[in-house]
Simulated scan of single mutants.
Amino acid sequence: MPAKYEDRLLRVLRHIHDNPAGDLSLDALAEVAAMSRFHWHRVFHAMTGESCAEAVRRARMYRAAAALVQGDRPLRLIAGDVGYPSQQSFTRAFRAAYGLTPGAFRHRGVLVPPHCPASKGDHPMYPVETLDQPARRLAALPHRGAYIRIGETFDAVAAIFSARGLWPHAHEMIGVYYDDPAAVAEGDLRSKAGIVIDEEVTLAAPLEEVRLPAGRYAVMHYKGPYPGLEAAYKYLYGDWLAGTDEEPGDHPPIEIYLNDPRNIAPEDLLTDVCVPLRAEVVA
């Protein structure tokens, strides 16, 4: 992979290990990586095979394990040293990582690392192009929860378009995906289900206007059922993007649906997954 992605990965891992009690939130780690918060976790997860939260827990638990075996510092202080607000929450996390309470681990006196994640493995390959995309104006509804159920929200958007006679002004159907499912609880995932609409159309509630910027995008051409998109994203972020000198832009990925799941077999569904890229490649 180009050195800049490797350097970012190592910089973030060093920061995690050097600051176990610090702010290790997704936004904070994206800032350390100098990458848009919309894309950093997808890159990290695809490249390492674990989420940022898993990497943080593993680093904190190993630091705590070393403190337990190599000294007699009280448990409540060790808990604070590795970012846990109470001894109880620390004990739960430590038991989950090691299968022992901190006290039992100290008594055993053998320092071992916590469970390591499986390697990321090989991702199926998909065709990717770098293409210029036009600015788009969406008439959209927000969707909260599992991405696989966003079809329900698209149905609501379509019903509103039919009721208001907006179809003559409609173009592509597009989903905007703000969160990485590997980092955010399913019930908290945020997305928008929208249809590209002409500029002259006035939008009224509950429809919201969403502006998608023009510019260069990495466009992955995916064919197949929507549940398979998870593996496609891992290839796009973990293999294709990490193997280039491209820099993701500060806007979430979008999916452009090129045919209708209501009358197309799942294996024939066509989706363009588009990740915005910076206009100038950062060295």
Rank of each mutant, 00 (worst) to 15 (best):
M1T: 09
K4M: 08
R8Y: 01
V12Y: 02
V12H: 04
H15N: 02
H17F: 02
R37F: 03
H41W: 07
A46D: 04
T48S: 08
E50M: 09
R57S: 05
A66Y: 05
Q70W: 10
R76L: 14
I78H: 13
A93G: 11
L100H: 12
L100F: 12
R106K: 14
L111S: 10
P114M: 07
H115E: 13
S119W: 10
G121L: 05
H123Q: 12
V128C: 09
T130Q: 10
Q133T: 08
A135S: 15
P142L: 02
H143R: 05
Y147L: 01
R149C: 01
D155N: 09
A158T: 13
I160Y: 06
A163Y: 11
G165E: 11
E172V: 06
D180H: 08
A185V: 03
G187N: 10
A193Q: 06
G194P: 00
D198Q: 15
V201R: 12
A205P: 15
A205E: 13
R216N: 00
A231H: 10
Y235N: 03
G238L: 10
D239T: 15
W240P: 03
G243R: 06
E246F: 07
P248L: 02
G249Y: 06
E255Y: 01
Y257K: 03
I264K: 05
P266T: 00
D272W: 05
V273K: 02
